[in-house]
Design a protein around this nucleic acid. Structure first.
Lengths: 247, 247
DNA sequence: CGCGCTGTTGAAACTTGTCAAAGTTTGTGG
DNA sequence: CCACAAACTTTGACAAGTTTCAACAGCGCG
């Protein structure tokens, strides 16, 4: 191999996505794969894509080709209806997948927007289907991921259908906390990447209601809140509050 | 083959589920399969199960082994939390699948309850995964079904997060109407299989609020309501109402 | 025929939304 | 690096929508 080839090859290796040495292995699709299987997966995950804050990863109505794994950063997904209403359907962080909604109709049904500068791995879906016909583990894991999304959605439906404002916010914060923890960050102290309005849209509340709930939590010593910087001071009371009987 | 064997074999054939001559082929998993593929699917769908009204098809916490296709009847799924709150997450009718939530943790995460005498086909999930490794079409169709469930859930989140009571009920009725229509029943006249309380739980409302919304619709000439018998008198106004700007 | 379950309706209480104003932070261009 | 504009957040007062509580009506079943 000439020096020039070697350099090109090296550059390629650097640019190329590689599941095999990605530190998200344990969160993302490659869970439990053997070395040779991982290698196949490496070939599958063709490209990375960088996004700046505010960029759309995809939009509702666009053709669906790939699902995306968040390598770094933070996203929201939302759906709009004609009359102008919109609903944030989820916030996605490192290691989570985006785009599963597009499989059903070959078309994305929601918007995915970066809430901070982010990077994703694009996984061409037809390739994923192909590979998962060869690798049982991958197939099963992918099914689990889709199912988990359905279970998560049921949780949100529960939240929207039965909880009141403060319970919703408590549930939201505890969920974020736990996801940060799972990624090795502090579960007690973190920065929100989304605005009050976006939280409100996710929780089915107006931004003022979200703001008031934050203030109340702070008054009661459950949190310290400075703009988007949150510190959870009393997790157990938050949990209690979340699952409290209605009075 | 002895007479006894032949009889046994016949009985087996009768009892046995057969996708190949099921009139739900176009709604359920077998969409677009070739004759020889259908035959394989027949072998997959091992058993039918009959349920009476009120019977549980499965309960939250039970081990997950199979998904179910509704052959006839009507189901609801719901999730409970410790403090006694519950949320109906969906109503399933002929040709729809139940149990997808169980894949993620090998355990059902909600209850599935028959709202009328019903019959389902049980599809052992590991077999389905096996077969879908052989039949692309089946694999892709199954992925579409899971994805459609996710999209549906987003719709419910939208409903719960942004709509007011009457809009929610209108959306609910229009959705039912369209599903009855797709099955060859009248889209304008049908019997609800669920109580006001169950509708309320699904829509995030109290049963009294549901009842009042029905009354108002009736007063305004949009519906005729006699207990659970519904006749839609003005579909377009219902649609308008559903997607109306907030005042 | 009456009991129980489901559904309807009214009035009052409560929660959340709306509107408005002011404070705070962030980003940009000079 | 400062100044100013834009975007976001907080807070109050009031309005609207939904729930709660209670009473009663209707239907189905034993």
């Amino acid at each position: 191999m000439s020096t020039r080839d070697a350099t090109a090859r090296l550059a390629f290796e650097v640019v190329k996505t590689a599941c095999s040495n990605c530190n998200l292995r344990e969160l993302c699709l490659p869970i439990g794969l053997e070395a040779d299987e991982l290698k196949k997966l490496d070939e599958l995950v063709s490209t990375r894509r960088r996004l700046k804050r505010g960029d759309y990863l995809y939009r509702a109505g666009q053709g669906f080709e790939s699902i995306y794994a968040v390598r770094s950063g933070f996203f929201k997904t939302d759906v709009l209806i004609e009359d102008g209403r919109d609903q944030v359907t989820g916030f996605q962080m490192t290691g989570e997948l985006l785009g599963l909604d597009g499989i059903s109709s070959e078309m994305h049904t929601c918007n995915a927007i970066a809430l901070e500068d982010s990077e994703v791995c694009a996984i061409p879906f037809s390739h994923l289907e192909g590979l998962s016909r060869q690798i049982h583990t991958l197939q099963h894991h992918f099914h689990q991921v889709m199912s988990r999304e359905i279970v998560r959605d049921h949780g949100v439906m529960m939240l929207l259908g039965t909880m009141r404002a403060e319970e919703r916010l408590a549930a939201f914060l505890l969920n974020l906390s736990q996801r940060f923890k799972a990624r090795g960050y502090s579960p007690a102290e973190f920065n929100l990447r989304m605005s009050r309005d976006e939280i409100g849209s996710y929780l089915g509340l107006k931004l003022e209601t979200v703001s008031r709930a934050f203030s109340r939590f702070q008054d009661e010593g459950l949190l310290s809140v400075h703009q988007r910087k949150i510190r959870i001071l009393n997790t157990s009371r938050l949990k209690q509050l979340m699952s409290h009987q209605r009075l």
